[in-house]
Design a protein around this nucleic acid. Structure first.
Lengths: 341, 341
DNA sequence: CTGTTAGCGCATTCAA
DNA sequence: TTGAATGCGCTAACAG
């Protein structure tokens, strides 16, 4: 494993010259010596030692991708299809920019800060991290940070973030079921993952109702438990006759798909007896029958956009857009029928 | 950001002593000075500079996780649920061991080698990498490597790998449908992902048939295209009347689920008209209706086992088992009926 | 039990 | 256009 010094010796030049060649500082080296040095670099299979680079430059070209892990929960964070899609997108974008991706799951802000310091991280992407932690983290380090799917309060300004137009999503899906004649509608969300997101989706629904002169009160927000048994219990209640609601608006495709399956197993047909919608438009939505009518979001684009924004920050460019809300789209499939009432 | 030297100065000791405290070399430091130093370390929020560590120790405490990316394919590698589960498991195990995870997708062996060198990686996990590349990689670096889901030829010895008992899986599922009276059976696999894996699964099927005195020839192996349109065409052929086969053994839950949906859409009922099985037992298998009868594999355990073995290698311990084949289990659900013929 | 010292490989002045 | 010298922060061998 040759070092710059050895290459320099073999090429009969100084280490500085080799370094200049390596960094494409063509102005500082004659094209002849450059070619010579480049030949040696290639022959000897020179590979830099990032340890030395970090030490000398005080940054590592590593982007830390932090996924928030709920404390005291045994589940692996990265299990749903969403995680892998967004991670795949980020990996691509990071790699294509010549950076490296360090993946870390935690629920501890100090751990994030320590990671940034010990590795001299060039940038951080924080996924699903609660707003309080985000503030603490950004307040303690100078490393550029882009937040993905984080919901800040109104007073929080100047954060760089990528999110979704949750409100619009909620509005669209509610408006759609309203247009199909549904009035007895429920919004069901797994509250603790994206607290803000679900709230905005719910608010979107409420607005759609309001625009039709209808009310959509807080009692229409049903929390979906993370415990499978409790969920089955919930689905059971929802399928009890006479059916109290004609449309169930889930805040994720996964739970919607699960509900569709459960309801079908218990004699409640979707969409004939009850309509069901999802959110995200992931693989489940297309795979199950009936196909889910849902709100599409571009998860891949979200990942690329996050890293893309971060790269600007890393290079000292202030991005024109600092808060991106990706658009949503209604995908009409087969899980919603017209209501007769 | 304090350095060891500064901590040493404040504590009135030498850098070496601080370093000794840091590394828990209690024998070389009096408990009194240790306490003093520890207090300063904490107060000053000391965080090591990994650049310096890499330089001095010639290793980084980074584990490289390489996922193979098929060349000339636009798709993101990390998209299926399998990827995220195994990645989550590895992240956990790596973190709990005090190491760091660098994620990289590539199809180029030189890139892997360069990565290992420039980052002084302590270890590598290679996912789904073709055997030829694995050989090349292991031959060019001294970094410990664990291979996950790689299929070597008989002559390849001494590789550290984690795989699945594919043969057994194929045997079990075929044996099961045979026991339900099926004879006209097809094995369907997406050949280019785990070429070896699918081949072994197929061989397992063949053995199950042979044990019953039946033949299961190469014509029973059907390649499932990665192109959705071609797959639809295939499913269409499979549902053409009169039905030529009574049981379809898919080598992945995803395609099985897709086929179930497609067949249902086109008037072929599963399992009444045709039985379908999957492989992996992932989330799809439980979500769709009918629920998939499939072969379960412990993806999470696979990830933990891979890193666990790698950690032994990193610490210079030769693991007792160098080639682990995780067991499989038949999960009987609702997608297989008895055959009448 | 504690301290001194010499690298590790690279980037970056500053001189020539 | 090129080179010499210095320092980045830590480890480990060695000396006391």
């Amino acid at each position: 494993m040759p070092t710059i010094k050895e290459i320099a010796r073999k090429a009969g030049v100084s280490p500085t010259t080799v370094s200049n060649v390596l960094h494409g500082r063509t102005a500082r080296v004659s094209s002849e010596t450059r070619r010579r040095v480049e030949a040696f670099l290639k022959d000897e299979e020179y590979a830099p030692n990032m340890g030395a680079v970090i030490l000398a430059r005080r940054n590592s070209r590593i982007i830390g991708v932090i996924v928030f892990m709920e404390p005291r929960r045994d589940e692996t964070v990265l299990e749903d299809p969403f995680s892998s899609s967004i991670l795949g997108a980020m990996e691509e974008e990071i790699r294509e920019n010549g950076y490296f991706l360090m993946l870390h799951a935690t629920s501890d802000e100090d751990e994030v800060i320590r990671l940034a310091r010990t590795w001299k991280l060039d940038g951080l992407v924080l996924l699903w991290v609660p707003a309080a932690l985000c503030r603490a983290i950004r307040g303690s380090i100078e490393t550029p940070v882009v937040f993905v799917d984080t919901y800040f309060e109104g007073k929080d300004r100047g954060f760089h973030r990528i999110g979704l137009d949750d409100f619009q999503g909620g509005y669209r899906i509610a408006d759609y079921v309203l247009s199909r004649g549904h009035r007895r509608v429920l919004f069901l969300a797994n509250d603790d993952v994206h607290p803000g997101g679900d709230r905005f989706r719910f608010e979107g629904c409420r607005k759609a109702f309001a625009d039709k002169g209808l009310e959509f009160g807080g009692d229409r927000f049903v929390v979906v438990s993370k415990d499978p048994a409790e969920r089955r219990e919930l689905y059971g209640r929802l399928s009890r006759r006479p059916l109290e609601y004609t449309a169930l608006l889930f805040s994720s495709d996964y739970y919607a798909a699960e509900a569709v399956s459960f309801l079908g197993d218990h004699g409640t047909r979707v969409p004939q007896d009850v309509s069901v919608t999802g959110f995200d438009d992931n693989i489940f939505a297309r795979l199950i029958r009936p196909r889910l009518t849902t709100i599409h979001q571009d998860v891949y684009g979200k990942g690329r956009a996050a890293v893309s924004m971060l790269m600007k920050l890393v290079r000292g460019i202030e991005p024109v857009e600092t808060e991106i809300r990706l658009p949503v789209r209604l995908v009409e499939r087969d899980s919603v029928a017209s209501a007769e009432d």
